[in-house]
């Protein structure tokens, strides 16, 4: 891939503006458990996780699906939770970094520790969730496929090379 002299930003198909403003009780399937929340249905899943369910591993970075810090799995697909309203979730299963593995031993998490990827660490939960979803669908991605999949996740500290290395190790070990 190239240094993009023309600005390139990842497009995201789940961008839409919330419009409903009434409170509602909703049952969400999160990390294998059903959680009842009483929120405005236009609330993004990110803030339901962080403010209502104490699951703060999923991070707020931009609020407009541009940085990937808030990535969760929606039925196994990497999804930006900052623009996914809770009303859109329905019966889908949400997995967060806290639910990725029982003991922090998912192959991606293990590879992240092997390579010692993080600097500040803030974006890493999002990076790991994106990487885990990629490997689930494509267990042996090429360098280019890794770059494409990981391109929506910004790491301000610049740990990209270690991220790529860790994804490859996880691919070999899973």
């Amino acid at each position: 891939m190239c240094l993009n002299f023309v600005s390139l930003f990842p497009s995201n198909s789940d961008i839409f503006m919330p419009s409903i403003t009434i409170m509602a009780k909703l049952n969400l399937k999160i990390n294998g458990e059903v959680k009842e929340v009483d929120v405005d249905p236009s609330t993004p899943v990110l803030w339901v996780l962080r403010d209502h369910l104490n699951l703060v591993g999923t991070k707020y970075g931009c609020g407009i699906a541009q940085c990937g810090a808030c990535t969760v799995h929606l039925d196994g697909t990497a999804t930006r939770s900052c623009m996914l309203t809770v009303s859109m979730v329905g019966n889908s299963e949400i997995t967060t970094i806290e639910g990725l593995s029982e003991n922090g031993d998912h192959p991606v998490q293990k590879a992240w520790l092997d390579v010692d990827v993080p600097q500040c660490g803030y974006c890493q939960a999002g990076q790991i969730m994106t990487a885990a979803a990629l490997l689930d669908k494509n267990p042996n991605p090429s360098d280019e496929e890794i770059e494409m999949a990981m391109n929506g996740n910004i790491c301000r500290c610049g740990t990209y090379l270690r991220i790529k290395k860790a994804v490859k190790i996880a691919s070999e070990n899973s």
């Binding site: 891939m1 190239c2 240094l3 993009n4 600005s7 930003f9 970075g61 931009c62 609020g63 407009i64 541009q66 940085c67 890794i146 770059e147 494409m148 990981m150 391109n151 929506g152 996740n153 910004i154 301000r156 610049g158 990209y160 090379l161 991220i163 790529k164």
Partner: peptide, 18 residues
């Protein structure tokens, strides 16, 4: 005011090797 127009370096723009 946000990362939609403030361009940050991304995975595919990082060097292959350091």
């Amino acid at each position: 005011s946000n990362f939609d127009t403030y361009k940050m370096i991304r995975q595919n723009e990082a060097p292959k090797e350091i």
